Amino acid sequence: MCSPEHFAVEYAINPWMDLTTPVDRELAVKQWDRLRETLVGLGHEVHLLAPEPGLPDMVYAANGAFVVDGTVYGARFKHEQRAAEAAAHRAFYEAQGWRFIAPNETNEGEGDFAYVPEAHGGLILAGHGFRTELPAHAEAQEALGRPVVSLRLVDPRFYHLDVALAAVDDANIVYFPGAFSTASQRVLAQLFPDAVVADDADAIAFGLNLVSDGRNVVLNSEAVGLAEKLEAAGYHPVPVELTELKKGGGSVKCCIAELRH
């Protein structure tokens, strides 16, 4: 995770960013602190990446890389405003001794990659259409040695996979069908017949931008309907408020890069 002490909406690179809407940075830091404390309280270890001035979106730490089996496939951002973040993430992983593979293709880390380790022997679900380029899916497969399923995003509101889909345990997902092309919807329905299916209201509330340890599902407190669906499916929803960070087009998952040994 990376503190939002430099967070601001200084440019608009997704439909949620509004330059006329002020950001309360102090509140953003408080809400982020509460998210971090929630994860620690659930028994998880949180590593911190130092924020850098001039990079207001560094708080969205999930976009900096994608980690599977101790191997890190680095990010290469689409927009120049975020490009310098990639080096900060690489330095973090290399300092930790992780095996780092530098990308040649445009991709935004866990923003567009999700890992479901026990689904069909272990699958990487990969989004494209707005940020990550399709050739990055093949590059990720070669880097990580796991089969990649390409999914086309078609609604600009859901510009990253992680605002439209999430793994809720090692074998299952939750997703919003309307974010995907018709063919990608068919692929998801075939691969995950028991998935938790979200609706438009869940997605607009950034409910799908969540993290789960297989039991506890930490999600945006505005996604009340999705929390009820997850509870009915046997999970334990843990709501957190992230109103300020939502102004940049992100929520819980965007703030968290998962380190998979």
Rank of each mutant, 00 (worst) to 15 (best):
L134P: 14
A88E: 13
H128F: 13
I13R: 01
A201L: 03
A88D: 12
G41S: 14
T243P: 10
A198S: 05
F176N: 02
Y115G: 07
E105T: 09
V68N: 11
A62Q: 10
L245Y: 09
T106L: 13
P22V: 07
V23Q: 09
G225H: 03
T21V: 14
K30M: 07
L48G: 15
P177H: 05
E85L: 04
E110A: 12
P4R: 05
V72F: 02
L125E: 04
L39F: 00
A8W: 02
L42F: 05
P239K: 02
N104G: 15
S184E: 01
L191D: 06
V59K: 05
T243K: 06
R152W: 01
I173S: 06
N216Q: 11
S212L: 07
V224F: 03
V197W: 01
L165Q: 12
D24Q: 09
P177Y: 02
S150F: 00
A86R: 05
N209Q: 00
P53S: 11
L49C: 11
H6K: 13
V154A: 06
E85S: 07
G207K: 01
H160W: 06
I101P: 11
P237E: 00
V116N: 03
E142L: 13
P103S: 15
E45G: 13
V197F: 00
L153H: 09
L230F: 03
A179S: 12
I13N: 08
G129K: 04
A203S: 12
L144R: 02
E108N: 01
K78I: 12
A50L: 10
R146F: 07
